[in-house]
Design a protein around this nucleic acid. Structure first.
Lengths: 338, 338
DNA sequence: TTGTAAGCGTTATCAC
DNA sequence: GTGATAACGCTTACAA
């Protein structure tokens, strides 16, 4: 047994054709006689031949790798979303190369290093790249898709949840349920999504606040996760004017709050507070929480992101596109539908 | 602005050195005068030069990509583990390329296709590759690490949780708590880990079962997740001899069971049942569940997996290594420590 | 320490 | 439809 990996030249020799014919046989767009292709495939099979992607990339100046940039994979929604992206990328015939940019200081440098791989594209779901980096990718011909990162970009396609409307939906639902004393909760270090959700929530409330019909406060938790919600519960429940309606910018914050609140309040007391989360992560529907929430359709967004990338690969100079995905209110038991 | 990407030749021209000097400047092992290297770096910086990995891979016959093979990213432990792997791979200077092999029929084909990328290695956490594939990787010089896939392999290094001992620990804890009527729950379509856990659990019980001190049954749920546990609750709670001790092979099955059981049993009734999960996923410590469990140390296992890979890269012909990581019993409220 | 030159395995261009 | 042949951008002897 030789340690040598079969190349197209080896296959060519065995099949009795030229090397370029072998290459063409593996390109579905090339016109090759059926007989020849069969002979080539047989020889390839026999030798266990696989195309060398490095060589292919070198000449095509483009690999079939897609950079998936994320951070803080501990965040459940990000994690769920990353998985959908991985699936979508794979289904489109490309390969996902994941990059974690938890270190916010080095993000530009990290992103720049991605250019070593001649990526087909980059989908950025965390960390906001600087203008400079955007230009660098453009120059390199690598399309970038920004997901829930910003309202506008001169260099990249955008896929966003309609975060402002998500916040608005939460406000409407609480108002409809007759809640008067409201609180929005977000992490001290909020994502772009959270900021927009809060903004949408408060914007919709504006007229009600002005005429004094409704009162609203913002509360911040240390971390945007279960623990953050758990620990912020005391502050929320101890307020002099106890809230009867809560909007949490992330489901897990809401779940943490719920667990802490269960220890202090009776079931009926807790039930009298209207609680809405956001994202609709897997946890939200678990019976212990059964959280009313604004769903961010992860699968749709992943599909849209990859589709956007593929489209730009096909039409490199088409106009930049911004897509806004609609959120959906899911009623569960923490705020009943009317 | 030109659309051209800078190559080492461009850098060389600007720095006034040869192309090979540029190449050497970016190789920390090459001896280059400090002055030259500085000049090269300055030129590279100015041109935004990045090494072309495709060209590098072609000549080195090895990319810095590591294939991370997984399936069913919906499974929380797998998901958490994948994230740790991604971090570890990245920290080691390599890049993770994730591959989902949910489709069990095509796994051999899928794995084979990985050879196109001249991977530095493959870490397989789901799906069991055939002998043939193992040999193919060996021939190609691509090391493979199998995580929780099998007891023995002739071709690959192995990192396993001590699953049998994990099951044994659960059995011991239930016995110690004085439980007599036990049930082990696993998915109908179990992973290697689950099989070994059940085996370890039942093996330890053997003597007690024979002298009639303790009774034990196996119960199977349709799916190895929250819903599986939720739906299997009825069968468990309706048994003629109600169980007082339960071992679930996966935490999420236990949590699903707990949520269903809360609807049928009073708190004290539920408390009288000893319940142990396995893995210690994030959910297990949430207050609504607060699940006693056998921890699978994901971070340690990810570290061990990547370290094993790096070690084999360094010493390709060293003896195959099998590592067994120790599980740990975490007492929480579903089974109190004595 | 630095330069010259020979590949690596593919795709693409051009003949035939 | 098929076969030569020239890149692609790097690393690595070998020379100087």
């Amino acid at each position: 047994m030789t340690k040598h990996t079969a190349t197209s030249a080896d296959v060519a020799a065995l099949a009795g054709v030229s090397q370029s014919t072998v290459s063409r046989s593996f390109d579905s767009n090339s016109r090759i006689s059926v007989a020849t292709r069969q002979r080539v495939f047989a020889a390839a099979e026999q030798l266990g031949y696989q195309i060398n992607k490095a060589a292919q990339t070198m000449i095509k100046k483009r690999s079939d790798l897609v950079g998936l940039v994320t951070a803080g994979l501990e965040d459940p929604f990000r994690s769920e979303f990353l998985h959908k992206l991985i699936i979508e990328v794979q289904n489109s015939g490309l390969r996902p190369m994941v990059m974690d940019v938890s270190n916010r200081e080095t993000i530009d440098e990290d992103l720049h290093s991605l250019m070593q791989y001649q990526l087909s594209g980059v989908i950025i779901t965390s960390g906001t790249p600087s203008e400079k980096i955007g230009k660098a990718f453009i120059k390199h011909g690598t399309p970038v898709v920004l997901v829930n990162r910003t309202e506008h970009s001169d260099d990249a396609d955008i896929v966003n949840l309609d975060n402002a409307t998500a916040g608005e939906m939460a406000a409407k639902a609480l108002i409809k349920a007759g809640k008067k004393q409201l609180i929005v909760v977000r992490a001290k270090n909020p994502s772009f999504s959270s900021i927009m959700r809060v903004k949408g929530f408060l914007n919709h409330l504006q007229p009600y606040l002005q005429n004094g019909q409704i009162h609203a406060n913002e509360v911040f938790c240390d971390t945007g996760n279960y623990d953050g919600g758990y620990h912020v519960a005391e502050q929320i429940l101890n307020a002099t004017n106890p809230a009867d309606g809560l909007f949490f910018c992330m489901d897990h914050i809401a779940c943490g709050f719920l667990d802490a609140a269960k220890k202090r309040l009776s079931t009926s007391e807790l039930m009298s507070i209207g609680i809405i989360g956001c994202d609709d992560v897997a946890l939200a529907r678990y019976q212990s929480y059964d959280l009313t929430t604004i769903r961010q359709p992860a699968a749709d967004m992943a599909k849209a992101s990859v589709q956007t990338l593929l489209n730009r690969l096909k039409y490199p100079s088409s106009a930049l596109k911004k897509q806004t995905i609609t959120a959906e209110l899911i009623y569960r038991s923490t705020l009943a539908a009317h």
